[in-house]
Amino acid sequence: MKERILLVFKRTFELETVDESISQKNCDKWDSMNHLNLIVEFETEFEITIEPEEMGIMKDFKTIETIISRKL
């Protein structure tokens, strides 16, 4: 699951490498448009629906993992 999340990051942000320390603060590519792309990719990858309240706080790896795992 961690791997799948990281792969989504890599794909969406077109990064060479990515690890679990990634957050909106330390990643240049994580702007509002890419945030949206990221949410869309997670919804597709995990076949889940992410609610607006959750979108707003999914700004680092840990929170993303927590929210996605709750839905699986």
Binding site: L36, V40, E43, T49, E51, P52, M55
Partner: peptide, 16 residues
């Protein structure tokens, strides 16, 4: 509508 109200995005981003 979720994306419409949160991001002013009218066309479903899943269709991008």
């Amino acid at each position: 509508w979720k994306y419409y109200f949160t991001s002013k995005i009218y066309i479903n981003p899943h269709l991008a």
